[in-house]
Write a protein that binds this DNA or RNA. Structure first.
Lengths: 119, 119
DNA sequence: CTGAGACATAGATGAACTTCGATGTATGAG
DNA sequence: CTCATACATCGAAGTTCATCTATGTCTCAG
């Protein structure tokens, strides 16, 4: 979190904003938030996120994830990259393996933003 | 809510499922949920949702919404249709005007699903 | 009935996205 | 050093998506 305000990640940008239902989103805010939502707007990425989150120790290596899908390894790698770039998954390379972990704060921010009702 | 289990709307399907972070989503669940997320994975639709939600009386007619965007009327109509089909906006035609209202339960379900952390 | 206004639908176009096979990179074993 | 393994990157192919213009439908006023 050593970034200036001008280089906020999507996740950080979301965290600062009011829930969608309270006041109109500015065009700029919507442009920052949409990519984050888009990152989870895919069945494969939803399952990847879910698999990582519910995995033992809260992390999973790519080798564990690929088996659940009928997709090629590069495709899984691609989806993991998108989730990582959105700030929803953290990467940790240990030896030959790469472990992914859910950024729970990011998911929470997103949920809060959408659920102005329940917040 | 007079539908059988086999003709659930996306919104109803979401409402029945566990948060993403608790247990792995099945492929089928992910396929049902993703379209709902995709419906709000666009800056224009995020703003539309936000505009309707924060409008006086909780509803807004199309004529109120179009002015906020630099887009053609059919494009706005298209986005409203997607949000309506996803179950996030309710329609009500009164005379010549069509009023949209946010389905807060649907938004809440979505937020709950994503925010397994905060739920 | 006729015309105008509000909104939806239809078809077309260009951009973005998902997926793949092929290839590249890095780590560790022998 | 050499090779196998784990994962990422790189185009390419097919599909989906956002947007537009043109047109259709519905409602009300006159």
């Amino acid at each position: 979190m050593s970034k200036s305000l001008l280089e906020l990640t999507p996740v950080e940008a979301v965290a600062c904003c009011s829930p969608v239902t309270r006041e109109p989103l500015t065009a700029e805010a919507a442009e920052r938030i949409a990519p984050l939502v888009k990152a989870i707007a895919d069945p494969v990425r939803l399952r990847l996120l879910s698999l990582v989150a519910s995995h033992a120790d809260g992390e999973a290596c790519v080798c564990d994830l690929g088996d659940a899908f009928d997709l090629s390894q590069p495709t899984i790698s691609h989806h993991l990259k998108l989730l990582h770039e959105a700030g929803l998954l953290d990467r940790d390379k240990r030896g030959v393996w790469v472990y992914y972990r859910v950024n729970t704060a990011a998911l929470g921010d997103l949920a809060t933003l959408l659920g102005g009702v329940t917040a």
